[in-house]
């Protein structure tokens, strides 16, 4: 169990950032899902739940998902069910259970850059950006590769409404487990493909070579490339070899879904 000396509801983002900067031992609390797993000693826990960061807003150009929106809110938001073939809702729906998704937040899922994250895999295949209080807005892909050195507060995730269709496939050993491998593919009306592979078990990454092959209509080649060019590792849920095989299968399944127009 994490120990906490002080609990503060931040009254403003500036205050939250100030608190965060005041000590290395101060931490922003998201959903609190892993509280009982670690043994960290936290001086001040910073709660962002009073800052109105839980909204999911759709404008003509983009969807803005507040950092404190829960995974369940992502799952049930009407605007997200329709957009991108519903992949954002689909990607979070198998995560543990409704109670868990009522607590886990988008901000914590993204900021923590978890390898197993279903949501990150899906977001990465879309044109998503993260909005950070200090560092400003940056592409999710950049954030995953090179996060700002200074600790920051993620306020929202923004996804451009570029008319993409997307398909999400996850392979799980049992329904409520983490994914052994997650794959998301999307195609824009202009024919621009994106392919992201997560739970490798390292965090989600795009495979540009495979995207090019998808655009050229070579699905088999793309799937093979995704399984060969990205790095895969072994953990309790699967070996690197098995993950490579899954990457190929799931990439093809995403392709099939998008080709058949099902997603």
């Amino acid at each position: 169990m994490i120990s906490i000396q002080e609990y503060r509801f931040a009254e403003s983002l500036d205050e939250a950032l100030q608190l965060l900067d005041a000590s290395r031992k101060n931490r922003v609390i998201g959903g609190g899902m892993w509280l009982r797993l670690g043994h960290a000693s936290v001086k001040t826990a910073i709660d962002l739940s009073r800052l109105g960061l839980d909204r999911i807003e759709a404008t003509e150009d983009e969807i803005a998902i507040g950092a404190m929106a829960t995974l369940r809110e992502v799952e049930t938001a009407p605007c997200l069910r329709e957009l991108f073939g519903g992949v954002l809702a689909e990607s979070v729906s198998p995560i543990v259970g409704v109670q868990f998704r009522n607590m886990a937040t988008v901000g914590a899922s993204v900021y923590s850059r978890y390898g197993f994250s279903d949501l990150l895999t899906a977001l990465l295949a879309l044109d998503a950006r993260v909005e950070l209080r200090r560092a400003g807005t940056m592409a999710l892909e950049d954030f995953l590769k090179n996060p700002p050195e200074k600790r920051d507060i993620l306020t929202s995730v923004r996804v451009r409404r570029d008319g993409r269709r997307a398909a999400y496939r996850t392979f799980r050993r049992s329904a409520t487990d983490f994914g052994v491998l997650n794959v998301c593919a999307s195609i824009s009306p202009e024919g621009d493909w994106r392919l992201s592979v997560g739970a490798r078990p390292a965090r989600a990454a795009r495979c540009l070579e495979a995207e090019a092959l998808l655009a050229a209509g070579d699905a088999a080649g793309a799937a093979k490339t995704a399984s060969e060019k990205l790095r895969y590792g072994s953990n309790l849920r699967g070996s690197a070899e098995y993950r490579r095989a899954l990457a190929e299968v799931l990439t093809l399944r995403c392709w099939d879904a998008l080709k058949e127009g099902k997603a």
Binding site: R173, S174, A175, T176, D177, L236
Partner: peptide
């Protein structure tokens, strides 16, 4: 699953999955 040290790695419902009503 056991780690090389002999420690049981599947020591929680996060790592040792029992059937849910979905399976």
């Amino acid at each position: 699953r056991t780690l090389p040290s002999g420690r049981l790695a599947t020591d929680s419902f996060m790592q040792y999955k029992i059937p849910s009503r979905l399976e």
